[in-house]
Design a protein around this nucleic acid. Structure first.
Lengths: 202, 202
DNA sequence: TCGTTTCTGTACCAATTGGTCCAAAACTAT
DNA sequence: ATAGTTTTGGACCAATTGGTACAGAAACGA
């Protein structure tokens, strides 16, 4: 019963996420957020708690959007192959970096941005972002583990996953630096080679 | 003639740099800076212009401190060897990441932090930081070029330098994430291996 | 010791920060 | 319709933001 929300909560949350992604946490003033989300001050506090809680929801949303491309390869080659594959990793980079419109790519990664921005400011937020990245790294590790077990690769899965995450973070910095797509493609190719993942033609 | 400054300009500048390094640009409020620099408001504006100009001086100072370890290997093995060497790169990582007190290491790299923080906020500052990093990358490239010419390494110098910078950036994120020294050592070892630089014992 | 010059501490500023409060509007179920 | 519940807009808040103004203190050359 009673009056329903006059706005689409998910849509507003996504709008907030995008603004945080572009500008960072501190640089997003309340009026900017309200404008982007197209809701009023009271609605924000009523529906999302406060700025900080809203931001945490945005981190979660961003994580889902980032992590899903990694897992959903499952659906594509569900012809008996393992879902943990080197192909997933390659596709992860493709989906989250190359195949993204320029104005999104230049934002880098909200999780990486947050770790750096909040490290000395709000350790809870920084750590929350770090934990999300750990989950991604754990998935990388599984992928490498399977590849090693199948003899497609040499080395320790943990080391490779750490290296892969380091490269990912470095790439995201490069993205936010505004490097061109062709530069990024080149860096990515070197990165995959460094990981022992041969890039297929396309 | 007339009254001299009652404070050590360099010392105050360094104090400001450290605070910016820890917290980022936006999170450093004027009172915090004044307190850290141990000067009064008017002195800051008289000697450094304003907050933004002060920050730019800090970027420059940080760059010098970062870049010098890369070049000054020259002095150490000036026994006829080229100053551009793979050893310089390895030492660069050692000096700027491993051999640094924990509370400094956890700050990451002011240049990387600035690129991310200011990308959508103040493109001049972001780009200034990016240019400094480019200079470092250019130095990397020279090192790789010499190594390739001497047959110590295969590949394209430009690609290797880009990869090296990507790894550096990723490592700095890992530092600010608060990863332990042993983890960082491990990641660094994998990184150097990925670059084709064999790590010497010590 | 005086005058000039420079520096420095404090008071002050308008603008903005995140957050609260409340009356009025809007909706549903009876 | 109307009672009951929730949302909504806007006014309001204290605290903080970066920056300026100015009077007086301090140091130097004469």
């Amino acid at each position: 019963m009673a009056r329903p929300l006059s706005f689409d909560r998910d849509a507003s949350l996504e709008a907030a996420m995008i603004l945080f992604w572009q500008r960072g946490y501190q640089a997003c003033a309340l009026p900017d957020l309200l404008n982007a989300m197209n809701i009023s001050r009271s609605s924000l506090y009523a529906s999302f708690g406060d700025k900080r809680q809203l931001f945490m929801e945005c981190l979660e949303l961003f994580f889902q959007r980032t992590f899903n491309p990694l897992c959903q390869i499952q659906g594509e080659n569900a012809n008996g192959e393992s879902s943990y594959s080197l192909q997933s990793i390659e596709n992860f980079f493709r989906y989250t970096i190359l195949q993204v419109p320029e104005h999104r790519r230049e934002c880098g990664c909200l999780l990486v941005n947050t770790i750096l921005e909040m490290a000395d400011q709000d350790q809870q937020l920084s750590q929350l972002a770090a934990e999300k990245l750990s989950q991604v790294e754990a998935y990388f590790q599984e992928c490498f583990k399977h590849a090693i077990d199948e003899g497609a690769l040499q080395g320790k899965a943990r080391d490779l996953a750490q290296l892969c995450m380091t490269l990912n973070q470095g790439l995201r910095v490069a993205c936010r630096q505004g490097r061109s797509l062709s530069e990024l493609e080149n860096i990515l190719q070197s990165s995959l080679r460094a990981l022992g993942i041969e890039q297929k033609m396309h």
